[in-house]
Design a protein around this nucleic acid. Structure first.
Lengths: 141, 141
DNA sequence: CTTTACGTTTACGTCAACGTCAAGTGACTC
DNA sequence: GAGTCACTTGACGTTGACGTAAACGTAAAG
């Protein structure tokens, strides 16, 4: 079991629920075209019933990771390597060590972005304070 | 004085230092083409000595904001509105209130990204823990 | 049995963010 | 004054991330 297949809800193994492309697209606020595009790039790979795609919990979890990655400014290619990291085989020590290294790289990346955000928020706070002061001065003037 | 023109160093008003496009591009790790592109979009507007661009502290500050915005996944158009926010006229109460509203929007945006990052980091931590456990089990097995 | 509602593939279009020539303008150096 | 920088302005090319339209399958509904 891994992060992608592990459910935040009660079940852990095979969730029988399925969704159509319209349902997931709608629910996640993207177009079916986008969902298919992610599949073309190998970020998700839903089952097929004939030619029709059927989406399971695992695919939804991946979609969540994809969209969060996008909000954070990662390109789809990066997002794929991140997602696939969670699914790589880790039977041997060498593989585990490789994955652990990747984890550290990812973490450094995320922490950098977090620092950027903290700075930006701090500047916004300062700026707001000055604006508030100006407003008060105007009201009193 | 505002956030963009305010210097983190000693001086506050007019810093006499200037830079060429090659210097700033080099120093910020981007190409001159990118710098000119930001200018085309109105994100910076360096002075001219004849046809030649000359960059001052203010332009460097803006470049910093631009690149940080990019790392955070904002598109250049958004970045422009953010940057220009700091420079908008705020003489009247209505303008100040508008700016304060914008600040809140920006803050909500940034805080959303921060939550995304916290989640991603938490998942990475969990994942690393499991990998470490697996590694230990292998070493002992 | 045709319409309606989804679904599919194929393929070309678009927009942002630059990359990459091409061709020209000073300014200085040999 | 010819060469070489460093800089300039076009203008077309490229890549990523989809949009969009065409043409077709399929299954339930009237």
């Amino acid at each position: 079991m891994n992060l992608v297949t592990a459910s935040s809800e009660s079940e852990t193994a095979s969730d029988p629920r399925t969704w159509t492309i319209a349902q997931v697209a709608d629910e996640f606020g993207v177009t079916h075209r986008a969902v298919r595009h992610y599949e073309e790039l190998g970020l998700i790979s839903p089952e097929r019933r004939g030619t029709v795609r059927i989406y399971r919990r695992r695919d939804r979890t991946r979609l969540n990771l994809i969209l969060r990655g996008k909000r954070l400014g990662f390109v789809l290619e990066e997002i794929r390597t991140i997602i696939n990291l969670y699914d790589e085989p880790r039977g041997q020590a060498s593989q585990l060590r490789y994955v652990l290294n990747q984890i550290n790289d990812r973490r450094a990346d995320l922490e950098r972005r977090r620092r950027d955000i903290e700075e930006a928020l701090k500047e916004l706070d300062d700026f707001e304070q000055r604006c508030q002061d100006d407003l008060l001065a105007l009201d009193r003037g």
